[in-house]
Design a binder for these strands. Structure first.
Lengths: 345, 345
DNA sequence: CCGTCGAGCTAAACCGAGTTAGCAACGACT
DNA sequence: AGTCGTTGCTAACTCGGTTTAGCTCGACGG
């Protein structure tokens, strides 16, 4: 049943050469070490005929390189966004002919340590530590492999570790610019603000988005027309905040939501109150959740480049030590759909 | 910088015993092979002091077991559902102290073969082949490791491979029962039907959901009041189909959508036409997409048990050969929210 | 006093590759 | 004829564990 694997020794014997020769040929060092053309050809042919595949365990043992990365996130399942991040990491790994271990710490440092341990035991060539929402984390110590923080910033600012994060400040600016370009001057924030520190706890994304928003509004000599903090950013919170906004007597303007789920709530509140998007209210938000394309009208939103984040994290692992250290801010592109109309002057 | 790992030989030397003894003690075979208590204690203590960790590559090489599984899906990113499936697989692997390789074939048989190859090279103890939407696939040949099909059925019915799939027929019945229990007799289908073979191509889920729906309606002496096939099941398709339904003059009843995205479209159409869910139309669907909890009112839907599917697939890999072969149908539970009201008699 | 037995441990082979040092054969050159 | 260099290949060691077969030593029986 479990027929034995073909080993290098089998190939060597069948080709009538030593294991050394077979090894050299198959690792393309044949020319370098002067193995004659006919012999090389024969070895390759025999290897192909026997469907020889090197045993990775053996290579790992000898070389210390596993052609394998680890990817640990605090949570995989929360969102489809996580899937995109993993997809990017997979693509990055594939490009370099690596495989990817996945682990989920569920936010527990112990579990994370266990996962790192298991991966280091397996001689991974590097580990990506990712968070699904940007936040501060301690840098795990004593890992003798390259580490990269993804969508996460080291709690100890002096930590010398590559960090890949989305450019949330730029995103905040882009969202505001989209509204200003359409002539809007009355911008209502849903989720955070109006003061720079009016943000839900522990979210760097919220803080930076708000910074960008206030910067760009400031450049135009504006302030938020109103703002409501939501400690949680689910549709229901967006609905409540927006309903509050409408009950305050506002009948038109621009609504800037801090993520797409809040925006869904905003849509619901606006439509239930008998208003239309975008005729009465223009809406813009962040993330480019799949949902954004499903709403009617489509939601204009600043995309979290999850795929790109995942891919770059892997690249950062491979960068020569030293080269990669520091922050990499991946741009967040605006996805224009139908939720912004020109302001009536 | 790259301090050398502590090896078993280091531990043995520090404890003043042979590598053999150290190995026996640390793999808990000390009693079996009569290593004295004091020696065992000393070895364990030294190992702990040196923070010894066995090199997995070496163990794999010797034993052929890697404590590692592979998980190949055709697409990871499409949905958050995929994330749940992976999460279940991760949990399954964790329970057995295994790690998980992830791969994405994007539907290409070549890429899938490449991934299987890479995993087998790494001596995985088994591979899960998953699909994000249920469909038929050929069983890859010549893999000398346990394989499990997840959310996928083998194209060759005689193939002797364990299969884990959701119980879509039961789900169809459950959806109908939820409506019948609320007194509905007029059930409009959005997505497939009314004839048993009116389904979009290549979706087993669609076929089986419809089978279940027709069975359960039949038991009550009913047929679908109307039905519209959608070849693609996105919100826009649901919107079009539902808008068509409303334009045909229907003003109340039950709408059964073949998935949650279609149901989102149905909600939009119903609300845009000035009707209310659930007062005018009760809605029920399938999948339990995250979205279902976000809609207003919450969408009652029959959940795809992705987490459970992932977990069971791993369990099936570990089942002794022969034991596991065959279909495992995982129940799809009804998630009751607010989209079904009692029918006005 | 010698043989036997079991307790307690170890030498050495093994898994399957990569890698280093060097050997044999041959022609060229002095 | 002897030395050298080159070509073409291989023996043997290495990675770090697991496993098999067997060694040593003291106690005990005859």
């Amino acid at each position: 049943m479990h027929q034995k694997r073909v080993t290098l020794a089998d190939v060597a014997k069948a080709a009538g050469v030593s294991r050394t020769t077979a090894s050299l040929v198959l690792s393309d060092r044949g020319d370098e070490l002067r193995i004659s053309e006919p012999v090389q050809h024969r070895v390759r042919q025999v290897a192909a005929e026997l469907a020889y595949r090197p045993n990775a365990a053996s290579q790992v043992l000898r070389t210390g390189l596993s052609r394998t990365f680890g990817f640990i996130s605090d949570t995989v399942a929360t969102s489809q966004l996580a899937g995109d991040m993993i997809k990017g990491a997979l693509e990055g790994a594939r490009r370099h002919d690596h495989m990817l271990f996945i682990g989920e710490s569920e936010g527990s440092e112990d579990e994370q340590a266990r996962l790192i341990q298991a991966m280091v035991d397996r001689q991974v060539d590097g580990i990506v530590i990712a968070s699904m929402f940007t936040r501060e984390r301690p840098v795990p110590g004593g890992v003798s492999r390259p580490l990269v923080f993804l969508n996460t910033v080291p709690a100890d600012a002096r930590a010398d570790i590559p960090v890949v994060v989305p450019d949330e400040i730029g995103a905040g600016r882009a969202a505001v610019r989209a509204l200003l370009d359409a002539g809007h001057r009355e911008v209502h924030l849903i989720g955070a603000g109006p003061a720079p520190d009016d943000v839900p706890p522990l979210t760097i994304a919220g803080q930076e988005r708000l910074d960008g928003i206030l910067q760009e509004l400031g450049k135009a000599g504006l302030k938020p027309a109103s703002a409501r903090v939501c400690n949680i950013w689910l549709p229901e919170d967006g609905w409540k905040a927006t309903t509050g906004l409408l009950q305050s007597g506002v009948t038109e303007g621009a609504v800037l939501c801090f993520n797409d789920r809040l925006a869904l709530g905003a849509y619901q509140a606006i439509q239930e109150a008998g208003f239309l998007v975008p005729q009465n209210f223009s809406v813009v938000s962040f993330d480019d959740h799949q949902l954004a394309g499903w709403l009617r009208p489509g939601l204009t939103t600043v995309a979290l480049p999850h795929y790109e984040l995942g891919r770059r994290a892997i690249e950062a692992l491979l960068a020569p030590a030293g080269t990669a250290a520091g922050f990499e801010r991946v741009p967040m592109p605006l996805r224009t759909r139908g939720s912004i109309a020109r302001a009536r002057i």
